[in-house]
Amino acid sequence: MSRTALLLLADGRFPAGGHAHSGGMEAAVASGSVHDTAGLEAFCRGRLHTAGLTAAGLAAAAATGHDPLALDEAADTRTPAPALRRVARRLGRQLMRAARATWPSTELDHLAHHRPQGAHQPVVLGVTARAAGLTPLDAAHAAAYDSVGGPATAAVRLLSLDPFEATAVLARLAEECDTVAGAAARAAERVAVEGVTVLPAASAPLLDITGEQHAARPVRLFAS
């Protein structure tokens, strides 16, 4: 396994289109529920342990080589908000394009062929990690970190927060990201035998509600 491959995959500059998404942060700012660094931290912590954990489980399971189409369906059943399903598939399609150019693999080709409109992003992330020679735990780390990195970067732009403070929030969440990634990877180890129901399905009502509200807004800075 190459540690540098993980850095490359988790790098915000990896051309997978994530910069256009705030992970629910813009909606939270618009509703007035996040207006400072403390709010950013509470938001990120909540997202990490819900949507982040669920995404990390799917990514880790995909990285074990489990059937990505079954995992894509599992992602659908874990994403009740249609706006968030659309976003996950759009991000999945963009990641797929970058991944196939970066780490060509028949498994990526297979998934792209069966989901031309895009598979859920965490599933693509897991298959990508596998193509890059990374482990399921690596994939879970990338997904967990992605679940907080996006909102933190967006908060800096939306609230003109001090970027040093926003980065310090991410540093404070590092240990919890590790915990979430570890739990996700342990669940993923059991998928082959016990099926996708063992994967985390943690959900957050407000992310679903505001995700749908945000999609209905005519003017917005971020796509989600």
Binding site: A28, A42, F43, G46, R47, A204
Partner: peptide, 11 residues
């Protein structure tokens, strides 16, 4: 439960 009453979960 972490941040269950925070702005991402129940606000």
């Amino acid at each position: 439960a972490p941040a269950w009453d925070g702005p991402a979960v129940l606000g």
